[in-house]
């Protein structure tokens, strides 16, 4: 049932577990992303790299696994930043699946639409870069 306290207006989606699942994905994903970025930042400092004055390594997907296994700062930083950038798309996809399972076809279609626009944006970015 909807209710309110002094400062907070609660949004009711009482029959839907989708917001909670999306919240968990965002919480876990962000924590993983920031943990990797923090590890990369520590590795960067230990290796004597100074931000701003020394440009960081370029993004090379083919080097990521090797960099992480070798404990290099670049690997942790790029994997962490990559997870961060991918999280919004992942939560849109999860919301779409969640609403579809709950039988809310309209909201699921909206989520699919958002995901499609993001996919087109990425495709345009790849083509025009």
């Amino acid at each position: 049932m909807p209710w309110r306290c002094r400062w907070v207006v609660w949004v009711p989606e009482s029959g839907s577990g989708t917001p909670r699942r999306v919240a968990r994905l965002l919480a876990v994903g962000t924590a993983a992303s920031v943990a990797l970025v923090a590890a990369g930042t520590v590795a960067m400092l230990l290796a004597g790299h100074v931000p701003v004055t020394q440009p960081g390594p370029a993004f090379r997907p083919s080097d990521l696994a090797a960099d992480v296994l070798a404990g290099r700062a670049a690997g942790f930083l790029w994997v962490g930043l990559g997870i961060a950038v991918a999280l919004p798309s992942a939560r849109v996809a999860l919301a779409g699946v969640g609403y579809l399972r709950e039988g809310d076809r309209r909201q699921a279609a909206v989520a699919r639409g958002v995901f499609a626009v993001l996919a087109v944006s990425t495709a345009v970015a790849l083509v025009t870069r």
Binding site: V34, G40, M44, F59, W78, V85, S121
Partner: peptide, 24 residues
């Protein structure tokens, strides 16, 4: 932001040494 961020990332505009401390 993610749609634009992907573009910047693929174009090599993100410096991980600066982005790391800022993101934390």
């Amino acid at each position: 932001a993610s749609a634009s961020a992907i573009l910047y990332l693929l174009r090599g505009q993100v410096d991980p040494y600066v982005a790391g401390p800022v993101v934390v």
